[in-house]
Design a protein around this nucleic acid. Structure first.
Lengths: 336, 336
DNA sequence: GACCGTCGTCGATACGCATCGACGGAGGAG
DNA sequence: CTCCTCCGTCGATGCGTATCGACGACGGTC
């Protein structure tokens, strides 16, 4: 079995020194056209590929980004995958690879991948309000980007979707349609207890917006489990009088199904707005007026920022929000 | 900012040589209790962690497994995540990390992660019948495990769920319940065209089993898209006479919803069996008699095999199938 | 009491690449 | 024609670890 070719082999074949090969590959010193061609031919001939370990050792750069992924997330699997895929693509676009560690490993995972120099930078997903990883990240010595916002974000680089803006837009839309009451079919109570930090942020903003529009707000945490949505919807619509406007912060599809099953068509008999991706909103039997949490945009911006930090690690800690936008479809009656 | 501690620093503090530190960590030579303690204390004091690059360079082992993940899969995102999570867990259980590359990168990704020595072994998911990666894998020089089976699997290590066995079990169950006709609501036609290899395998086995039981089989590829399932169900049930037994090879939930919407309760009015995970089968309003494709079992066994190959790379190419098992729930009427 | 084997440790080296300083040659300025 | 500059290349070194051979000390055997 042939040994794997090294840059020294390339150098020998091209008739140059090993360092020249290195400079051809990195472009960090001028190289004559002739020499470049010789080296490139030799590289092609040997199908030479630089050894990542040696590169990391000598160059102090691994060209690897690590991502802490919460597989056991209560979120939609699709949402998670969109994040991860986008992160992987962004990394590859800059000639980096992606190392995945599970969130269950806890803060130790950060110390491991960073301490062992397995990566140059880290992305942390599903940040909780009290997240031990916040403290660890500060002393990590590597660019670290949080997707989500811990309570003490001092000095950290955090990015997140603007859940508060989303809450305001959605409540305002229902209020403008004439609803005097808004029922939020919200995330499972477990999620809130877990400390997933956007739940309280969304809720507080929704309540503030309701108060501002002079609308009553009812927050129904929908437990996970199959019949739960059905029950909540029944409960919410059970009261006498006009049905409230509905805001599905998760599981839009299930809410819509529950309504249709009672022959209530959003946009005709009730108003329904949702926090869900555009793809989901459009695929449903009744296209929903919705705000999309933009997982792909969030990831893309996160990675852009992360690579900027790799070039200038002195970037100050900061919170960036990806703005919420409402797309009107057919699940809300005309205002007025 | 303090320099990252190295094994040399540990050695100095412990008052031993660097090689002794190395032997303490690897356990490859006997070490006296006293020395071991000195070294371990020094390691703890410095929170020393070995540099992965240097380790890979010197030891020719990265302790990283790469996985080629098909993000753009037509499969359920949940299914994919289960695979990836299980692979990550199995890797960590053996002190390895997981590098993710997207399937869009094609065969080049294999050559890259292997050629650059970014990993010790590779897992390839969503194998197609004509998969260029099969050829590449043969010359990779590293243990490579395929989850799925390419047409030319000669010399490759492939593992997959026994889709053929699953088809036989499911068809047999419907036949035993007295159905004279079976309609398979199958994977989207795109999937088949893509060459995802288990689709034809499942289909052929289903047809053979139907013939064997003297049952007519109707294969309906359900296009992806929202209303498609509804349409297919309508079409299948539209014929006069007793409704056929239904086999949902994907999207069990949608099929069940479509039936319920027509007031057909599986287990009472029709028979429905599915290929879906146990979790899904149990969470539905009518618990389904089903065969689970066992994503977690497949991943676990794949990783077990992969690590065996890491210790003995001479293991012969082979196809291993994870057996199918049918779990009876309440969606099929009593046989007879 | 001399000898041999084992245990525990050390020093040296290799791994493959990036980078720094140095150096020879070509070209322009005087 | 000479001196100087800049371009292109080379040799040497360091990155941090694993591993090999060697060596001293110790205990047991005859």
């Amino acid at each position: 079995m042939a040994r794997v070719p090294t840059s020294k082999d390339v150098a020998r074949i091209a008739g140059v020194s090993q360092s020249t090969v290195s400079y051809v590959m990195s472009g960090k010193r001028p190289i004559s056209e002739k020499t470049r061609r010789l080296v490139e031919d030799a590289i092609a001939q040997l199908t030479y590929q630089p050894n990542a370990g040696a590169r990391a050792l000598a160059g102090r750069r691994t060209n690897v980004v690590a991502a802490v992924v919460p597989f056991r997330t209560p979120l939609s699997a699709h949402g998670l995958m969109a994040f991860v895929e986008e992160i992987a693509l962004a990394a590859r676009a800059r000639d980096h690879d992606l190392l995945i560690v599970t969130a269950d490993e806890g803060p130790g995972a950060l110390q491991r991948v960073s301490g062992r120099a397995l990566c140059d930078a880290v992305v942390v997903m599903e940040v909780r309000t009290d997240d031990e990883r916040a403290e660890v990240a500060r002393s990590l010595g590597r660019p670290t980007l949080f997707i989500g916002v811990p309570r003490d974000a001092e000095g950290l680089h955090c990015i997140d979707f603007d859940f508060e803006g989303a809450a305001r837009l959605l409540v305002a839309e229902l209020a403008a349609a004439g609803n005097r009451e808004v029922a939020v079919l919200g995330w499972a109570p477990e999620l809130e207890e877990l400390g997933i930090n956007y739940v309280p942020r969304f809720r507080a903003a929704a309540e503030a917006a309701a108060a501002e529009h002079g609308v009553a707000l009812r927050w129904c945490a929908v437990p996970s489990g199959h019949g739960a949505v059905e029950e909540c919807v029944a409960q919410v619509l059970g009261a006498p009088g006009a049905p409230p406007g509905l805001l599905a912060s998760t599981g839009a599809q299930a809410v819509l199904s529950a309504l249709l099953r009672r022959d209530l068509v959003p946009g005709r008999d009730v108003d329904l707005v949702a926090l869900c991706t555009d793809a989901e909103a459009e695929a449903l039997p009744v296209p929903l007026t919705a705000v999309s949490p933009q997982p792909r945009d969030v990831s893309r911006q996160a990675m852009e920022w992360l690579f900027a930090l790799l070039e200038d690690p002195e970037g100050p800690g900061e919170l960036r929000l990806v703005p919420a936008e409402l797309t009107r479809r057919r699940s809300v009656r005309a205002a007025g």
